[in-house]
Amino acid sequence: MRRKIPLIITFIIGVVLVTGYFVTRGPFNTLYESFSDYFAIITVFAFILGGGSLLKIHLKRVSNRSTDWPYSVVTLAGFLVTLVIGLFKVGNPDGMGGEILAAGSWLRFLFDGVYNPLSATMFSLLAFFVASASYRAFRARTKEATILLSAAMVILLGRTPVGAWLTAWMPEILGFLELPNLANWIMAWPNTAGQRAIMIGIALGVIATSLRIILGIERNYLGRRE
C-alpha cells in the first residue's frame, strides 16, 4: 500500500494537471498555480530536514574530531550566524518589522560583504577552468574535432573587437568572412539548428519520462517497496 497510494496520487494529479492545461474554467485552469504554491510550502518545511542534516553531519565531525573537522566549524558558524541574524532580524535598523535586506542591517552587510564576493569568486573560477579545458579539449584529432576547434576560434575572436580589427582589411564583397559576421552566422544558424535538435530530443524525453511516471511504469524514484 505504501507504494500503491503514491502511484495512484501521481496518476490522478498528472492527468488532472495535463487536463487543466486545456481547460478554460476553474478549478482546472488554476490547478498548476495551486500546486506550485503547495510545492513551495512543502519545500520550505523540507528545509528543516536539510538544515537538520547539515547540523547533524558537521556536529558529528566536530565531536569525533574527524579529518578536516575545522572546516565543519566554519560551516556551522556561518550557517548559525546567518540563520539567527536573518530569522530575528538582528541589527536591522527597523527592528522585526523592517525590510529583510534593509540598508545598514547586519544581513545586508553579510549579503554585500560576504555572500556577494564569495559567489562572484566561485563564478569567476569559470574563466580559469574554461582556459584549461579549452587547452586540453580543443585538439584537431578528428575531422569533427577540427570543425569544432575552428568554430571555437571564430567565436572567441569574433566576440571581441579584435576580431573586427583582424579582418577589417577584407574587401566589401568578402564582408561575410569578417570574423564578427562569421561568429554571428555560426551562432544564428549552425548553433540554432543544433540547439533546436537537442531541445526537440529533450522535449520528447520529458514527455516519455512524464508518461512513464504518470502511468506508474517508472517508480524507482519512489524508493522503498512494501
Partner: peptide, 9 residues
C-alpha cells in the same frame, strides 16, 4: 583573455 585562450589552443 580570448586572445590568450586562442593562443593556448
Amino acid at each position: 583573455t580570448h586572445v590568450l585562450i586562442v593562443l593556448l589552443i
